[in-house]
Design a protein around this nucleic acid. Sequence first.
DNA 1: CAGTATCCACAAGGATACTG
DNA 2: CAGTATCCTTGTGGATACTG
Lengths: 118, 118
Amino acid sequence: MSPETDRRTDCLADWCADAEWCGLTCALDVLDRKWSPVVVAVLLDGPRGFAAISDAVDGVSGTVLSETLDDLTDAGIVERRTVSERPHRVEYRLTAAGRDLEPAVEALREWGERHGTA
Amino acid sequence: MSPETDRRTDCLADWCADAEWCGLTCALDVLDRKWSPVVVAVLLDGPRGFAAISDAVDGVSGTVLSETLDDLTDAGIVERRTVSERPHRVEYRLTAAGRDLEPAVEALREWGERHGTA
DNA sequence: CAGTATCCACAAGGATACTG
DNA sequence: CAGTATCCTTGTGGATACTG
């Protein structure tokens, strides 16, 4: 009954207890934050600046959006590009791994369209 | 700038601010809890009792699993069936809406298999 | 504009003990 | 076995103010 027995040690999610659901838990770990999937969905339409994302994702605070983008960047899903301009601008775009999330995000969105209404 | 302008009032998620991502936010709202998607994944393999789910989802406490199943039941994703036996037994199974989550869960799991390893 | 630094509030997970 | 009732701790979101 040792919890380590069938645990995937190469899994990014530290709460992945059993190998059976490791893929799922890893994906969930990356999209753990409330707004992460929505941000990914926004960026699937193309690169955006901070303000554009903030506008598209109505309801998120600047602080949290910043943290969310940081986490997504650390996870290798989002890439930051600082544009040397005045005023200061930063562009966020999905990496290949990020774009690869499209089927999952799409599937979730479609489910919501079908079942998520009262 | 009224936040209510383009908000889908028929969306189950109360934090769905704009119609654009309503489907996605609704789905996320339903799978909001840490273990919800994993529980759904387990039940995609067929109906299970409380103990069986608890065993399959290694790492979750009884309290939280109970709450998770309650929420999923309220959301119309899981169905409870009490089996009149001794000792007391309860069976959980996915509803049609729950089974309809399979593509999304599968897509997430596949992404994790591809990208979620260190 | 694009953040960072605090501070606060609340929700959710976990442990334990108890009940039908 | 299948929960429910507490209690505790942490994580996360949000507001505000400040910096480059």
